[in-house]
Design a binder for these strands. Structure first.
Lengths: 226, 226
DNA sequence: ATCTGAGTTCGGCAATTTGCTAATTATGAT
DNA sequence: ATCATAATTAGCAAATTGCCGAACTCAGAT
């Protein structure tokens, strides 16, 4: 499982337009500072930065391997939470789409693109970057075993779209109950919005958004993101 | 789809113990000679060899990217057969297990490990390397839509195990009908072996083997292969 | 206003890679 | 036995990487 992930990470880094950005993305997912990572690798922090900033156009695969393996091993030593969360089953029909970005995208940009209306969320959070999104059918989600555990497959710095929302309570309650929280929750064509939903969003400091676009349109738009 | 494969290839190469071997494995899958590949890359064949033989301990990711993308693009220009065959659906319950090796394994070694009895196959073929295997339930296979198209997901330099074999005719007929052939066919605990089966195997120059081990045991043993 | 931690930039230098040519060794096919 | 193609190996010049230290920006906390 670890090897599988290291391969995935390495492949992503190698093929990425900006390997440095992708490297950084993973470092963020593993919640490591440059300094932390550097010390895991026994190098100075500036080295990490040089790679992330692309000063070396084509680092050796040995370097990539070291970086990637260090992060995975570090996580393993911490209990392996991130690695194992990475292996959410994707045969879950409640998940309509799930994707990762290579570079962080500011929340505002996302909201703008999907013509979203902000229901809750103060400005300080709005500029934070997210690294991916999940679109879930909320009705299927509750009837499917363990879905909410599967949503956070790829880091919580992400947006979660809920479709089939009636009042918007259940999804927020589920999120509240779950230890890992997304940055943004977007209700896709909700019938109404219960006040409890916005209240919970505020409590969790999560940006809550509604959009009138349907899932298909959203996927098309988000395809442009990288 | 192509990008996904390039990432997979790159990841495998980077993380591999012997990146050169893995590179070679892919070159073989794409049925390219060193010369061919070199010309796609506008370099001399010796360059390709240097990488495959590991003379460069840690080639740059730019190099890896070039190699991998050249192969995939080449295949695309040829109709993309290999790339698309790579994306066989794996939700097919007829497939019990499917795996790739990083380095070629001689057929004889495989047969020896699973205590196989050779029913057909001349010596010249026995030393050829294979790069993976598929274990299929032959009963399910015929009732499942398009299975035989899905078996060759990962190159035909592989072994195919058929379980639930009665006479051994149908599997060989299917293989005969299919344009791509595996190197080895292994019947897992067959009831009997029809003469037609061995005859067809001879015609196709395929090594036909029987084993009395069950699927589980086989998987356990093959786990050791790399 | 100052301090601290995180991240960035860059000159420098040894070690390594890149790609070439040319020679050599399999591997086949006739 | 011979010819052709494929693969391997060695040696070499130019370019690049990998890593460092030191100076610098930026955001947040005290």
């Amino acid at each position: 499982m670890q090897k599988q992930l290291t391969r995935r990470m390495a492949g992503e880094i190698v093929i990425s337009e900006k390997p440095g950005d992708t490297l950084k993305k993973w470092r963020n997912i593993f919640k490591l500072s440059q300094k932390n990572l550097a010390s895991l690798l026994n190098v100075k922090p500036s080295v990490v930065c040089d790679f992330e900033k692309g000063r070396r156009a084509s680092p050796g695969i040995g370097t990539v391997r070291k970086f990637v393996e260090a992060m995975v091993e570090y996580d393993k030593a911490q209990g392996g939470k991130i690695v194992s969360s990475m292996f959410a089953k994707d045969n879950n029909s409640a998940v309509y789409d799930i994707r990762e970005f290579n570079t962080g995208t500011p929340i505002t940009k996302l909201i703008q693109e999907i013509k979203g209306e902000i229901l809750s969320g103060n400005e300080e959070i709005l500029e934070r970057p997210i690294y991916g999104y999940t679109i879930v059918d909320s009705l299927k989600a509750i009837t499917t075993f363990n879905v909410f555990g599967d949503l956070y497959g790829w880091s919580n710095e992400r947006a979660i779209f809920f479709s089939g929302v009636h009042y918007g309570r259940s999804p927020m309650i589920a999120i509240r109950a779950h230890p890992v929280k997304p940055r943004v929750v977007i209700y896709v064509k909700p019938k109404t919005i219960d006040k409890l939903a916005t209240k919970l969003a505020e409590m969790e400091r999560i940006v809550l958004v509604r959009t009138e676009m349907n899932e298909e349109e959203i996927v098309t738009i988000l395809k442009k993101f990288n």
